[in-house]
């Protein structure tokens, strides 16, 4: 098991837990979907896993090792990629500089840095044409592509995505989920939170529904695929 979260409790204000004991697992070479209404605690869960929020109880194991004192700066060296809520490109830096920074964890290996960056440009012709343009001048969709390619640069073993399709045109939503399948094919375990329940369900092997800080339903995604509307109506 790549990631195992057990009975996780976390929150912002003292005394009020947003997550009231959440357990979930992510396997390598698979996509795990997490859906839920606004305020259910999806982003909070991802933040707690990545060390941006202190947990108040429970355990988080990555590759069977405890992530207890995990700091965000440890993510990259453990090959964990995290697409945080909102936009995370560096707007004043060029597209190329943004990508080069994605190789920070192996920056001493210059040949590998060059290879990784060139591969990202090969994968995305949009980024190739905007190479020397400041990232802040890209459209929202192009920025999302840049973020996705940047986080894929160090061959992550675990990919944690917070709303990758938010605000994107339908065509781009497809592209994003295709890229997620590609990461899975490359061997990564992907944990994806997204508001488009249908896409998440179609892309995932396993699905969790989070409701008010607790897992309400879970199971193989194939079990939900024909009753996703019912699921959305009842829990989201």
């Amino acid at each position: 098991m790549l990631l195992r979260v057990q009975d996780l409790k976390a929150g912002y204000a003292t005394g009020a837990d947003v997550l009231k004991g959440v357990s979930l697992t992510v396997r390598a070479s698979s996509v795990t979907g997490l859906i839920g209404a606004n305020g259910a605690g999806k982003s909070t869960l991802l933040k707690a896993i990545c060390g941006f929020l202190k947990r108040r109880g429970g355990t988080i194991e990555f590759d069977a090792a405890d992530m207890g004192r995990f700091q965000p700066a440890h993510l990259a060296q453990n090959r964990i990629a995290y697409l945080m809520e909102g936009h995370s490109v560096f707007p004043g830096l060029t597209v190329e500089e943004n990508l080069v920074l994605g190789t920070w964890s192996f920056r001493k290996d210059r040949a590998r840095v060059r290879r990784a960056v060139e591969r990202a440009f090969d994968l995305s012709s949009v980024l190739q044409t905007k190479r020397k343009i400041r990232a802040g001048l890209l459209s929202g969709g192009q920025q999302r592509i840049l973020e996705m390619e940047r986080l894929a640069l160090n061959d992550p073993r675990l990919v944690i995505l917070d709303e990758p399709s938010l605000g994107l045109a339908p065509k781009l939503v497809h592209d994003v989920f295709d890229r997620i399948s590609q990461m899975k094919a490359d061997g990564a375990g992907v944990l994806v939170v997204d508001q488009s329940a249908r896409h998440v369900c179609a892309a995932s092997e396993h699905l969790y529904v989070l409701r008010l800080g607790e897992i309400a339903i879970e199971g193989p995604a194939s079990r939900f695929s024909d009753r996703i509307d019912e699921l959305v109506r009842n829990f989201i």
Binding site: F52, A76, Q77, M84, L93, V100, L101, G102, W104
Partner: peptide, 23 residues
Amino acid sequence: NLGRAIRATAEHPAAAQVLGINI
């Protein structure tokens, strides 16, 4: 590399951290 990391930290410290930069 260090100069780029400094500029990145100025623009989005959390994203810089996620990439492994010790802010």
